[in-house]
Simulated assay, not measured.
Amino acid sequence: MKLVWSMVLLVAATTMMNVAKCWEEVPASTSGGVILVGGKVLCQDCTEGWNEWVHGNKPIEGCTVSVTCKDERKRIVYYGSDKTDKAGDFEITINKYVYGKKINPEACFTRLVSSPDPVCNIPTDFAGGKTGVKLGRPTIVYRDTIKHILEPLYYTTPMCDEPNASDNDNDNDDSYGKEKNY
């Protein structure tokens, strides 16, 4: 009988220890931390005088800015976006580990997606917002948080948009890029 009670108590104690381990809180240091990407989106109007064009940029509320991160095989492992507030500021939070893989900030880039402004809605590459800004050195590193504060990204008006001069508009080319024989 003593042997049976000893076995029951042993099983009960083992079960209680396993349950206690399940409820154990995971320390913050093993959670991996976060990468913060922040910045500002502004409207740059070329129709103004030089001083107003350079210093008179106004923030755009409601712009969508995205961050895309790729792995070593150039596959997208993270995509996130944020909308700007009244001051034109955005901040995107990325977990350092996504599906068990560590995000490499140098393989991430930030770009402009859309602007709700009916006049100032053409993305520019003045600070890389159109093609994408790679995350370089972090601005702030504190414990498990790495923060990248980017230079302002700009939209402009259709009047200020430069046409693409690299397109060949030859009459000798058809719509498939083959030369016509006359």
Rank of each mutant, 00 (worst) to 15 (best):
L112I: 01
R137W: 08
I94E: 03
Q44W: 15
T145L: 03
L42G: 06
I60Y: 07
E25Y: 14
V41G: 03
R73M: 00
N18G: 12
H148P: 05
R75D: 10
G128T: 11
D169P: 02
G88H: 07
V11Y: 03
A20N: 04
A107V: 01
T15A: 15
T93Y: 05
A107S: 13
C69G: 09
L36W: 14
N18T: 15
T47S: 15
T124S: 06
A13Q: 10
M16Y: 10
V119I: 07
K178S: 06
R111Y: 12
W23R: 03
L150C: 06
T84S: 09
E24N: 01
K74A: 13
E179A: 09
G33L: 04
N172E: 09
T14L: 13
V19W: 14
D171H: 15
I140W: 05
K21N: 11
R75Y: 14
V113K: 15
T84K: 02
W23D: 05
S115A: 11
E52T: 13
G56M: 04
V67Y: 12
Y142A: 13
P123E: 04
P152M: 03
S31N: 11
G49T: 09
L153F: 02
D89C: 00
R143I: 12
G80M: 05
T14W: 13
G49L: 02
D144N: 09
R111A: 05
M16T: 14
T139S: 12
H55A: 00
A12S: 15
D173F: 10
V77E: 09
Y142C: 00
D169Y: 15
L150N: 10
E162P: 01
Y182I: 02
V77D: 03
F109Y: 12
V119D: 13
A13I: 13
T124R: 06
D173Q: 08
L112E: 02
G100D: 04
C46L: 06
W23T: 01
L3T: 14
G39R: 03
K86H: 11
N95Q: 12
